[in-house]
Amino acid sequence: MMANFIHVITTYSFMQRAFLAAVLIGFIVGIVGVLMILRGLSLMGDAIGHSVLPGVAMSHLLGLPHAIGAATFGIIASLLIGFITEKTTLKKDTVLGLVFSSFFALGIVMIAQIRTMTDLHHILFGNILTIRQADVENLMWLAGAVLLLVLLFYKELLLTSFDETMATVYGVKTKLIHYLFLFVLTVVIVFAIQLVGVILIVAMMITPAATAYLLTHHMHRMLIVSTLLSVSASMIGVFLSLQLNVSAGSTIVLTSFVIFLITFLLAPKKGWVINLLK
């Protein structure tokens, strides 16, 4: 089984690209996922993931790279969610559900008009075999940029995630940081949907972070643990997808979930079974 996997990876360049892309995406979402859950933006990630669908369709119509349309619609959705939340007394989760479902519905209508169902399937669930060399290079840049941003602005990210009010008193531009983070989140989602699709992207982002949350009490350790878990889940997920001949997104997400489940039960301090035995 393993020998076959190594043979496939070493023989076919498209598989090498896919494997490398999965590792890079795992690395990126491992970091961004932590910030997403600590800033209470898990649902926002889901919303952006679903909202990029009409952007992909629009890009196809205009002959532009998918990433441009997807990013544009992701940003429009996050701004619209912020605007409606601010101008009404509706709860944020209501606005999130309202906006992303509508964008998603629009995307399905648009794609139905212009593409085949196979394409829709790839957008919804990802297709690792469509990853090109240029995508891998872009992912390397993105991974470097995300790592650099977190290293440089760790203090600001910690402050604004933990106590936004205090950050505002200190004169930190909290709204700017919030929207910059949403922008980074959108870019990451746009790149990652190629691998896992718009439906599963949020699970890929939050599951390793949630597992790390159960394992550590410090944000910097949580970032490291989440990244390691996410990269491992990506590698195992790609391996399993080859063996089972199913989409890599689903096997990556399921691998992450199994790791989460084991941690939930057996984590040294917060594990359910461990606490039961105490």
Partner: peptide
């Protein structure tokens, strides 16, 4: 405050 935030 979110007292479950991972911070010492």
């Amino acid at each position: 405050y979110d007292l479950n935030f991972p911070i010492s």
